Simulated assay, not measured.
Amino acid sequence: MSTNLLSASPYSEIGGVVQEYFWNWENQQLRVVYESLGKGTQLLLLPAFSTVSTRSEMGEIGKLLSPNFEVVAVDWPGFGQSSRLAVNYGPALYHDFLEGFVASVIKTPVAVVAAGHSAAYVLQLANKIPSVFSRIVLVAPTWRGPLRVMGLNQQITGTVRELVRSPFVGQILYKLNTLPSFLNFMYRRHVYVDAAKLTPDFIQHKWRNTQQPGGRYAPAAFVTGTLDAVDNQADFLALARGLSVPLKVVIGESCPAKSRAEMDALATLPGVQTAVLPGSLGMHEEYPQAVVEAVRDFLLSSESSLS
């Protein structure tokens, strides 16, 4: 495992210094791309898992916080500009990656802002190694993949996953599910609130991100619930109860009902700080200024305690 400074490729997503982290999984080397911006104490930014997941969705939050921190934004393995190999993406892979990345690249304890499905992975690492994080911010946290939210059973979701992973049929299914028109529909349905922000350039950028070789493998795992780090709400809440560091949860007031109920349950736990803001599941990208205003003091109190 190592880090290298890159030159021309891959390109910057947030205007920072692009680097790569090499990491081995099941006898294959995966390249993970991350980007640093600003100076000071490090702050880890983890994007949500989704078909279009990329560190650029944390870009505006990173820019707004870069005067106070050295923000480090990561493309998860299988997403963004990181390697998209045909490995079996699942919780074990992401647990191992996050633990290894933080140990190799990040100066701990570090504050972290994690969006969406990243939440359970952060909570699990914080329970396993209490000294790794100083403060945790979860933005629109979720733990169930879309098909599981819809109530589909494991047999059906497993069949869907294998179909998308298969040659020919899988490529066709993935192409249909990443058409710009379909991406626009999904954003309008539960990701963004203001449809005027879904410009042709915005959707085209998201579409290009999905079209990299091997692009379908990790998204297929996410959509079918294969990346769910926990199996039920009780386990998710238990992770939050087990924390020894401060936790703040930022909730989008327009999140889908089932996802909102999970966030509200998390927010009721003793000691959990909460902010309810405009937005839905993509609030970290759609309303970055509001999110930063809600969490800046919380994060800065972590920095002062370490100085």
Results as ranks from 00 to 15, higher is better:
Leu173Asp: 04
Leu173Ile: 15
Tyr174Trp: 11
Lys175Trp: 15
Lys175Leu: 15
Asn177Lys: 03
Thr178Lys: 12
Pro180Phe: 11
Pro180Val: 08
Pro180Met: 12
Pro180Cys: 11
Pro180Asn: 11
Pro180Trp: 12
Ser181Gln: 14
Phe182Gln: 11
Leu183Phe: 08
Leu183Glu: 03
Asn184Glu: 14
Asn184Arg: 15
Phe185Leu: 10
Arg188Phe: 03
Arg189Asn: 06
His190Gly: 08
His190Asp: 05
His190Ala: 06
Val191Lys: 00
Val191Arg: 00
Tyr192Ile: 03
Tyr192Phe: 14
Asp194Glu: 14
Asp194Phe: 06
Asp194Met: 08
Ala195Gln: 12
Ala196Phe: 04
Ala196Val: 06
Lys197Asp: 02
Lys197Gln: 15
Pro200Glu: 00
Phe202Met: 09
Phe202Asn: 09
Ile203Gln: 01
Ile203Asp: 00
Gln204His: 12
Gln204Glu: 13
Gln204Arg: 13
Lys206Ser: 04
Trp207Gln: 07
Arg208Ser: 05
Asn209Trp: 06
Asn209His: 07
Thr210Cys: 13
Thr210Gln: 08
Gln212Ser: 10
Pro213Trp: 08
Pro213Phe: 06
Gly214His: 12
Gly214Asn: 13
Gly215Pro: 11
Gly215Ala: 07
Arg216Glu: 10
Tyr217Asp: 03
Ala218Val: 01
Pro219Arg: 03
Ala220Cys: 08
Ala221Asn: 05
Ala221Thr: 03
Phe222Asp: 11
Gly225Asn: 02
Thr226Phe: 03
Leu227Ser: 04
Leu227Ile: 05
Asp228Ala: 06
Asp228His: 01
Asp228Asn: 08
Ala229His: 09
Ala229Lys: 09
Val230Ile: 04
Asn232Lys: 07
Asn232Pro: 01
Asn232Ala: 02
Gln233Cys: 04
Ala234Cys: 01
Ala234Leu: 07
Ala234Glu: 12
Asp235Cys: 01
Asp235Leu: 02
Phe236Tyr: 14
Phe236Gly: 01
Leu237Glu: 12
Ala238Met: 02
Leu239Pro: 01
Ala240Arg: 08
Arg241Trp: 00
Arg241Thr: 02
Gly242Asn: 12
Gly242Arg: 12
Leu243Ile: 10
Leu243Cys: 05
Ser244Asn: 15
Ser244Trp: 02
Val245Met: 03
Val245Glu: 05
Pro246Gln: 10
Lys248Pro: 01
Lys248Asp: 04
Lys248Ala: 02
Lys248Leu: 13
Val250Asn: 01
Val250Gly: 00
Val250Cys: 03
Ile251Leu: 14
Ile251Thr: 03
Ile251Tyr: 04
Ile251Pro: 00
Gly252Phe: 04
Gly252Ile: 01
Gly252Pro: 01
Gly252Val: 01
Glu253Thr: 13
Ser254His: 11
Ser254Pro: 01
Cys255Ser: 15
Pro256Met: 09
Ala257Met: 12
Ala257Leu: 13
Ala257Ser: 13
Ala257Lys: 14
Ala257Phe: 12
Lys258Glu: 14
Lys258Ile: 14
Lys258Val: 14
Ser259Met: 14
Ala261Gln: 15
Asp264Asn: 14
Asp264Pro: 02
Asp264Gln: 15
Asp264His: 13
Leu266His: 10
Leu266Gln: 10
Leu266Gly: 04
Ala267Asn: 09
Ala267Gln: 12
Thr268Tyr: 06
